[in-house]
């Protein structure tokens, strides 16, 4: 699992009495700036009463309002730890003010470095067959104590690689940021199910160890690469081989970077065996729970 954010700071744009509304252009631009900076934002306006939910945990919230120089709520009052009057300030000044105020409780907006690419399981479809656990060499998957599949190490997932979703016979694995359906979460059709089942059969025909096959081909490519004297020619050859590998694995859509970084054949065998062992354990555990 990705390290949980110890404190996700939320910004409240407060436009209820006695605050004045933000200027229309400023409001939208400020919202975009805050979101790009990693801050969740809540916009409060109209006649509604401020609720407990609106207050949330005051410690990790900052309330911004145009109070004309006289904010009615002191810090700590009404459950809001930080209240700032932003009357007359522009977008960048307000963003700086937020950064400064929240620097005390949060080192930097979290999540700016890691593209959140990881499998999301549709448990309405998943049968806990553990094929994904058996397939993934990067320990993304694990099983719960009662033998259910679980995504446990999201950050181990290889960005833009949806291969595990391709081996799922139930089309139950989604990557919400993937380009196309049904992997992106779009509705699953009968054709999708038939197509995915066919891919699993192909995988079985190949001995169920696509990575080993790919690795063998990669080794041959590297061998040729090492014999080349001309660096540019060698690079071209390597790219050609990787493209060939990609074509071989096109049904799985494994990115070239992942293919290029596959571990050694022995390591692959070891990891695959370990994954299979985990899957079998989970399946055994699951069957005793039923």
């Amino acid at each position: 699992m990705i390290a949980p954010a110890n404190l996700k700071v939320q910004v409240l744009l407060y436009e209820r009495f006695p605050a004045e509304p933000f200027e229309a252009g400023l409001r939208a631009s400020l919202l975009a700036g805050l979101l790009d900076g990693g801050y969740p934002v809540q916009v409060l306006r109209g006649e509604s009463e401020t609720t407990e939910r609106d207050r949330g945990n005051g410690e990790n919230r900052i309330l911004l309002g145009c109070f004309g120089g006289q904010p009615p709520m002191d810090d700590g009052e009404h459950g809001f730890e930080r209240v700032r009057d932003v009357s007359g300030l522009g977008r960048d000044e307000i963003l700086s003010l937020v950064e400064e105020a929240m620097g005390e409780v949060q080192e930097a907006p979290v999540g700016r470095r890691w593209k959140p690419w990881f499998p999301v399981i549709d448990f309405d479809r998943c049968t806990h067959c553990m094929q994904c656990l058996s397939f993934c060499l990067f320990d993304v998957y694990g099983a719960t104590s009662d033998g259910k599949i679980q995504v446990q190490n999201e950050s181990n997932c290889k960005t833009d690689c949806p291969a595990c979703s391709r081996v799922c016979p139930e089309v139950a694995i989604m990557f919400p940021k993937y380009k196309a359906g049904p992997i992106n979460g779009d509705a699953v059709s009968d054709d999708d199910v038939r197509r995915e089942a066919m891919k699993v059969d192909i995988s079985a025909l190949l001995g169920g160890d696509i990575y080993a096959l790919l690795r063998d081909r990669s080794e041959k490519a590297k061998s040729r690469f090492s014999k080349e004297r001309d660096d540019e020619r060698a690079l071209r050859e390597r790219e050609r081989c990787l493209n060939k590998l990609k074509a071989t694995a096109s049904g799985l859509e494994i990115p070239g970077e992942v293919l290029a970084s596959l571990p050694s054949a022995d390591e692959i065998r070891e990891k695959a065996e370990e994954a299979r062992r985990k899957a079998q354990q989970a399946l055994a555990l699951g069957s005793t729970q039923q």
Partner: peptide, 12 residues
């Protein structure tokens, strides 16, 4: 309310 990225929030 708005959030920067639901995927990121889910992973965390």
């Amino acid at each position: 309310e708005c959030v920067p990225d639901l995927c990121e929030m889910s992973a965390r």
